[in-house]
Nucleic acid binder design. Structure first.
Length: 289
DNA sequence: TGCCAGGCCTTCC
DNA sequence: GGAAGGCATGGC
C-alpha cells in the first residue's frame, strides 16, 4: 500500500467529484469526504480533511504527479474564483456556494466515450453503462482485496459489436460508440496531440465524430483538455441562464444567444463559471424565483 | 401513464 | 440554415 499526503488550496473533493464531470468515483460509506475511483491505470482512494488530501493507490509510480495533474492542482483556482466573483452578484453567490470545484484532466478517450453516452441521458444511467463497459472490456486491477476495472483502451474495444454496446445499456448511442472507436483506431484524431490544438481546431475535429455535437465536444474539452473558456449548454445550464439573464425573453432565446452572452461576459473562465452554475442549479442552491 | 435526462442524427424545407 | 421528429432506457 502506498500513501501520500498533498496540501491543497481552494479545493473541495466532494464538489469536484460530484458536480457531474466524472462518472467513476464512489463515496466510501461511513468515511466522510472519502472517495474511491479508477483513473488512467490505477485505483485511487482519497480523503480530504481541511487542506490535506490523503491518497492511497494500488500503484506507487508517479502517484503524486498523477494526482496533481488529474485534479489540476497546479492552477491557482483561488485567484480564478476571485476574478469570477467580480462578474456580478449572481455569479459571486454561485461560486461562494460551490467554492473549490476543480476541472479534472481526465483521460481523453474515456471522456469522449462517456460524454457520447451522456447525450439525452441521466447521470445514474450514464454511470452504470460506463461501469458495465469497464467491467466487460477493461483490464482488472486489485486494490485493498477488491477487484476494479480500468476503462478499456481503444484496442480492447476493437471487436465489440453494436449489439454488445447495446447490452451495456447505452441505448441508441450504441452505433455512435462503435463508429467513434473505429475512427480512433484509424487515428482520425491523434490522441497524443489534442492538448496542443487550439480550442477551435479541436472542436472541429471532435464534431466529425459520430455522436459528438457541440455540447458533448465542449464537455470533452472542458473535462479532459483544460479548455476553460468553453461553455457547454445542456438543459440545466439553459435553465439557469434563462432564469438569471433571459427572464424577459420568456424562453425564446436560442442556445446560440446564450453562448454568445456567456462567452462575452465570462471570457476565458466561461467553463468554470458554467460548472458552478450547473452544480448550483442541479443541487437546488439557486433560487428559481 | 407520461415526462425527463449533461443531445445528436436524419430528414425535410 | 433552421425546424421537426425519432431515439433506448430507467427513475420519478
Amino acid at each position: 500500500m502506498n500513501n501520500i499526503n498533498i496540501l491543497v488550496d481552494c479545493f473541495n473533493l466532494k464538489y469536484t467529484l460530484e458536480c457531474g464531470q466524472c462518472f467513476r468515483w464512489e463515496a466510501v460509506e461511513n468515511k466522510p469526504n472519502t472517495y474511491i475511483g479508477v483513473i488512467h491505470d490505477r485505483v485511487l482512494k482519497i480523503t480530504q480533511e481541511g487542506n490535506l488530501l490523503s491518497v492511497s493507490s494500488n500503484k506507487e509510480e508517479d502517484l503524486e504527479e498523477i494526482v496533481k495533474e488529474y485534479f489540476d492542482l497546479n492552477k491557482d483556482y483561488s485567484k480564478i474564483e476571485k476574478k469570477i466573483a467580480t462578474f456580478d452578484k449572481k455569479i459571486a453567490t454561485a461560486v461562494k456556494n460551490t467554492s473549490g470545484i476543480r476541472h479534472l484532466r481526465q483521460d481523453f478517450f474515456e471522456t469522449l466515450l462517456s460524454f457520447i453516452i451522456s447525450a439525452n441521458n441521466n447521470i445514474p444511467r450514464i454511470t452504470k453503462s460506463i461501469q458495465t463497459i469497464s467491467n466487460r472490456y477493461g483490464t482488472k486491477v486489485m486494490f485493498e482485496g477488491k477487484e476494479y476495472s480500468l476503462f478499456p483502451t481503444k484496442e480492447q474495444l476493437k471487436n465489440v459489436t453494436v449489439d454488445e454496446y447495446r447490452e451495456c445499456g447505452v441505448g441508441f448511442r450504441d452505433r455512435y460508440l462503435k463508429d467513434t472507436v473505429e475512427d480512433l483506431l484509424n487515428n482520425k484524431i491523434d490522441v497524443s496531440n489534442v492538448d496542443k490544438l487550439s480550442t477551435e481546431e479541436l472542436r472541429k475535429k471532435l464534431l466529425t465524430l459520430k455522436g459528438v455535437g457541440p455540447k458533448v465536444a465542449d464537455c470533452i474539452m472542458l473535462f479532459s483538455c483544460n479548455k476553460d473558456e468553453v461553455f457547454p449548454i445542456d438543459v440545466w445550464v439553459e435553465r439557469v441562464m434563462s432564469i438569471l439573464y433571459f427572464k424577459e425573453y420568456k424562453g425564446k432565446m436560442t442556445k446560440k444567444d446564450i453562448m454568445e452572452y456567456a462567452t462575452k461576459k465570462f471570457g476565458k473562465y466561461a467553463g468554470i463559471v458554467q460548472q458552478h452554475l450547473f452544480y448550483n442549479i442541479r443541487e437546488g442552491k439557486i433560487n428559481l424565483g
